[in-house]
Design a protein around this nucleic acid. Sequence first.
DNA 1: GTAGGGTTAG
Length: 658
Amino acid sequence: MAAASIPITSLPWHHSVSLPSPTTSITVNNDRYFSNHPTILLIKQCSNSKQLKQIHAQMLRNGLFSDPFSASTLVSAFSMSSFQGVDYAHKLFDQIPKPNIYTWNVLIRAYSSSQVPVQSLLIFTRMLYRCDQVLPNKFTYPFVIKAAAELLDMRVGEVLHGMAVKMSLGSDVFILNSLIHFYASCGCLDSAYRVFLNIPVRDVVSWNTIITGFAQGDRPDEAIELFREMQTSLKPDKVTMMSVLTACTKKLDLEIGRWVSNEPKPDAVTFVSTLSACAQVGAIYMGGWIHGYIKKHGVKLSCHLITSLIDMYSKCGDLNKALEVFYSVDDKDVFIWSAMVAGLAMHGHGRDAIDLFKKMQEVNVKPNAVTFTNLLCACSHTGLVEEGRDFFKKMQPVYGVVPGVKHYACMVDMLGRAGHLDEAIELIKAMPMPPLASVWGALLGACKLHGNVEVAEQASSHLLELEPWNHGAYVLMSNIYAKSGKWDKVAMLRKRMKYIGLKKEPGCSSIEVDASFHEFVVGDNTHPQSKRIYAKLNEISEKLKSMGYEPNRSQVLQCVEEEDMQEQALHLHSEKLAIAFGLISLKQAQPIRIMKNLRVCGDCHNVAKLISKLYNKEIFLRDRYRFHHFKAGDCSCKDYWPGSYRKACRKLTSEPLP
DNA sequence: GTAGGGTTAG
């Protein structure tokens, strides 16, 4: 068969595209397969249905449509786009003589989240009655159960539940999670909870689903209780926090409702738990609203509540508000002082944190272990090594606080970051307790900063021994290898990660605009305002170039070879998208507040500094470890955090010792 | 060699 060359002018990436023709074919189980990967790649690159339709026409002409794999890929591609796309996918599906289970599932999935979820169920029954040896599998059930949940059809859901069990799929966690969602949607929280309890190994989604169920079903106390229980075995994620936030809001609503009907007012405990959820997700609007409510209704400000407020404002990026609350109280206990030290620390005001610590002693409040963790953290984040060493040394003899693992981790972090790797290692060796993962993690982080491969290898092997599932360790290690050009080792690590099923946590940034959250991942184009965002990014990029800015390529630590590809990867980091969105959607006087789940990369850090100057805009960026406050071209971290440790070290050594 | 894929919130 000769290659057919057809111009598809509307495809953006080429002026003309040749569809590959099948060059080889083999027969397996009476089915003929063609080797045609390029077609599939082509389909996967399509961004709209017009392009897909053109490819479909071509496939029909050169016989590729009779290849089940190509055809099902096409159906899948159509079903991904809008509702019209699903409709078209359905028509296409009907033209396939013997669809395989994957193709069935594709269509069922597409309908399950469409405007007509009932179609999912209809196609499912069609599949059952066709009797051509295609049976539903573990991928089918989550979709049909989802459709039943959408339709709130109790009977259908129960039947599906029974079928899945009969097919020995009764312990598949995906199916069971879907069932929890189904029963909860139908208002049968007890059935949902029973399913939840029967899951052999519960994952984050299981917990999230049941927590959400209770939160939305007006049983917020149970939701919050489950959230507490969850934390003993699993790390909550973004979805968990949103669900907990819902639960807290509900609780507050219920409390207010009860208060209106002359029952006891919402108490401080309610506010403490709600504020803590706000702090964790960075919901400053909601947090501020609660603070307003507290003031308006004269809720008694206990030390606990004050601590929560300070913590919330600090973690949401409003240090001034946190300080305002702090100074408005006369009688402060050790928790309030410690929270304020932590707030100053995470915003990079190490000196102020130390001053506060001194003031605390002047008024005779005795520091505890938490105070010292925060204090050492402050020293570490600002590079105050001498001070940190001194406090650590005095902890036990002067203040009577025995250093714990956390304090050692802080010290290792501080020393390592400042370049004293040997001293950090000596400290680990001298630890009276076994070093936990946090200690090795700190050492590994320092190795990344200083490009020390040998120590990094040791640290990561200790870390992975303790936490084999820690993908952060793999990513750090592979970045260290990449930085020193050891691409073979990078490849080996990626292979191993894949082998044990670990995935890199995708970078994700969120921004709160008028009380609603907007999230971005790398290269995200799913936001409704996506076009405007990218236009803004281009504008920024032009302006920065004219200022003489060059992207910092060492930040792209994947094996990307082409130069402009690298620039693109940098260009599309989630924090940049969020900043661009902030620029177009906030008023001039409003600062941009962004939260990132990972650490900010050096290039984004530079760009943020430049943008703060260029657009005269304050930017608060909370990353995994701390805050960066960008203003007039500078950052509150004084560049000590991401990459420029040398500068900070030089600054340190030139300063007189205390 | 003949593959691929799922659940939770707003």
